[in-house]
Amino acid sequence: MPVTRSVDFQQTIPRSLVHRAAVSEVFVTDLNVLGEGRFEVGAQWPRRHSFFGPRTRAFHDPMLYAETVRQAGLLIAHRAYGVPLSHGFLSDHKVYSVSEAGVATEGRPIDVVLEVSAHEVEHRGKNVGGMRLDYECFRDGQRIGTASDRWRCVSPAVYRRVRGDHFAATPFQAALLPAVAPALVGRDRAEDVLVAEAPADGTWSLRFDPDHSVLFDHAVDHVPGMVLIEGARQAALLAIGDPYALPLSVEFEFGSYVEFDSDCQLVVEADDTGSDRTRTVRVEVRQNGATAAHGTLGMRLS
């Protein structure tokens, strides 16, 4: 039955429900079922995080919000819709928008509440096969952001067939390319840099440390969507020449898996600065001559 209690922020939910290996990488704390296809999710943003920031003293990294939305969707899938933990998830479309005030730091952990609604729920027999989840994010009772995530899920047997020869792939198959200077993308450590030195203007190769404790917290056989979005963000920072610009809005479409065993390019085109200090940046993710994903980022200049 639906519950009417307030969401709890005292502890995180089991890490398996959000596909994380480390407890420290879980941000979601609670789930309330409000009614048919309606949910409330609690989450806490840490004062500081080894990868998500804050990138400056003034602001949390908006990608922390994106990761919170990702975790909330998985929690709802498993807890509310009974999707088995063994199923594989395929993301088709992600979008988020958050206000500058919404990611302001206060020198303490931040509690946020996501109000979530499910739409276009698909079934394969008796099992849920996919849906679209829409989100509104609240901080101290004020709405600070929205998001939407469309995904599908498949059984282990189907996933194995879909992945074929790449089923057992690991990030250690990827070539470790030379990183751009970390300061150019607002980072302190080379292992946090996801763009390689560029052979041509407007195009960078995706690179990553396969042993990164956050990006590759658990075993994966392809480049995760969050890694692609972070790579696109860093390429956008290079294109606009502002290492501390905030990606306050992001929209990404995923068309195919990005594999570890061949070069992945980030092709970037940036618009002029708008009246609100925002530059719109379009990023195409290309591999083996084809577009695997593409997205648009709204970068608020620092």
Rank of each mutant, 00 (worst) to 15 (best):
T146W: 09
N32T: 08
R139H: 06
Y96L: 08
D263T: 05
L215Q: 08
R300S: 05
F172P: 02
Q44G: 12
M1K: 07
A147P: 06
K94N: 04
A58W: 04
G107N: 11
L238T: 08
A21D: 13
S91R: 01
Q71C: 10
P2W: 12
V128K: 02
D149P: 00
A190L: 08
D192L: 00
L177Q: 15
D188K: 04
H119N: 01
R163W: 07
F167T: 08
K126M: 12
H60R: 02
A196V: 07
H87D: 03
Q142S: 12
P171K: 15
I240Y: 01
F208C: 04
D8A: 01
E269D: 15
T280I: 14
L31V: 05
G130L: 09
T105F: 02
F216Q: 10
E191Q: 11
A72H: 07
G241H: 09
D261S: 12
G289D: 05
R132D: 03
M63F: 09
V113D: 03
P210C: 07
G164T: 01
P199N: 09
M63L: 13
V103K: 05
G145Y: 04
R160P: 03
K126C: 14
T291Y: 04
F59V: 11
V195D: 00
H60G: 03
E67I: 05
R15K: 11
T68C: 12
G125C: 13
G129E: 14
G88A: 15
R233L: 10
R143I: 02
S117W: 00
T170Y: 12
T278Q: 06
A22V: 09
V95K: 07
A179C: 14
S97I: 10
V162T: 14
P243D: 14
T105C: 15
L90N: 00
A118G: 01
S213G: 07
A181C: 09
G130W: 01
Y159A: 13
A101M: 06
R161V: 11
D111W: 00
L246S: 13
V268E: 05
D61A: 03
R15Q: 12
Q173L: 15
A101G: 13
F9H: 07
I229Q: 13
V121G: 00
G274M: 07
D242T: 09
I240D: 06
E120P: 00
D140Y: 04
V95G: 04
R150S: 12
P46I: 03
S86W: 03
Q265D: 11
Q10K: 10
G164C: 05
M226V: 11
A101I: 04
Q234E: 11
